[in-house]
Design a protein around this nucleic acid. Structure first.
Length: 318
DNA sequence: AAAAGGTGCAACCGCGGATTT
DNA sequence: CAAATCCGCGGTTGCACCTTT
């Protein structure tokens, strides 16, 4: 013999809660505390299922709930946690004081998910959807600030090292447009020598091992489109999309060469996650740049020439 | 001004693990 | 140990409000 039934399904009210019902529930819980949801409705004089009472309390009436719009920091934290935890809304909510799983879930589905899709980022895998990206428009937006993409994460933009941006753009171009290897080598291979890439000088650590030296702007000849030919990338800003594109593209490129590119997740370094999410918008310029550099703190095998990788990108059929 | 379509969010539903008897 | 229910979670729905035509 198990427990008694939770509640009699007949005669119980459903739908929106009235202020009177809210008051009854609040008064009861203030006196007796939350829990024992099965017997609570009867004791509190409510014609509701205990489940409905628990939901109303945890998602709406709880005194520690933070109402109102999500801050940029909260939004950033949600995105980062979702990339690690997936749709574990309760786990995400546990790291966002005052926010409920239901609220975060709704916010994700109505705001963040759509924005990621518009940015060409798969909201499930958090990887860039290169098959859908129009890289030429992205590059144009980088080239021309007046055409800049709508900033990811509420308009905040992250300064990114020019060399990394160029790498991302180049890798994506190669993936999407299958540039002839020999042609590409002649145009780009020399400037893309990994030893010629420059990391931000204001950071305390070298974020991408093996990157050093300086890098000049480089030209990229695009034989498949007259409109995009001879792009010359200039120092500029790029938002988080650049990070996704870069990491995804580099990962693919390295894996195609049989290397295992290790990109640490915030899960493996939670302090880094917290520091980065806090400093992204609230900090000064130096903090923002540090956040950016932290994003690229992954290992690149020694002795690997990135030009060698990009010269042998396999043909892809779309 | 009104209708149609879109958006946001509170609440419900159903499932699965945990707990109790 | 098995049965029955509790509890919490993620997915989905319905409706009020907003925007567009």
């Amino acid at each position: 013999m198990g427990r008694a039934p939770c509640c009699d399904k007949d005669g119980l009210k459903k739908g929106p809660w009235t202020p009177e019902e809210d008051l009854k529930l609040i008064n009861y819980i203030q006196t007796h505390g939350p829990g024992n949801w099965r017997s609570l409705p009867k004791s509190a004089g409510l014609q509701r299922c205990g489940k409905s009472c628990r939901l109303r309390w945890t998602n709406y009436l709880r005194p520690d709930i933070k109402r109102g719009r999500f801050s940029l920091e909260e939004e950033d934290t949600i995105i980062q946690l979702h990339s690690i935890l997936g749709n574990k809304w309760s786990s995400i909510a546990a790291r966002l004081p005052g926010r409920t799983d239901n609220e975060i879930k709704n916010y994700w589905n109505t705001h963040i998910r759509k924005r990621l899709l518009r940015m060409g980022i798969d909201p499930v895998t958090h990887a860039p959807r290169l098959d859908l990206l129009d890289m030429s428009s992205i590059l144009r937006s980088v080239l021309n600030p007046s055409l800049n993409m709508q900033g990811f994460l509420g308009g905040a933009q992250v300064l990114m090292n020019q060399g990394l941006l160029n790498l991302a753009a180049t890798a994506s171009l190669l993936e999407n447009q299958n540039l002839a290897s020999n042609n590409y080598v002649n145009q780009v291979a020399q400037p893309l020598d990994i030893t010629q890439l420059q990391m931000p000088t204001h950071t305390n650590t070298t974020s991408v091992e093996g990157f050093s030296g300086t890098m000049e702007n480089f030209s990229c000849s695009n034989s498949s489109s007259a409109a995009d030919e001879n792009l010359v990338l200039q120092p500029n800003q790029v938002d988080l999309l650049g990070h996704h594109v870069l990491v995804h593209s580099l990962k693919n490129a390295y894996q195609n060469k049989g290397y295992d590119l290790v990109i640490p997740t915030p899960e493996s370094s939670p302090n880094q996650l917290n520091a980065s999410s806090n400093s992204l918008r609230s900090g000064n310029e130096e903090e923002k740049n540090s956040f950016c550099s932290d994003l690229f703190e992954f290992e690149i095998p020694e002795g690997l020439d990135i030009a060698d990788i990009f010269c042998n990108v396999p043909q892809t059929n779309y």
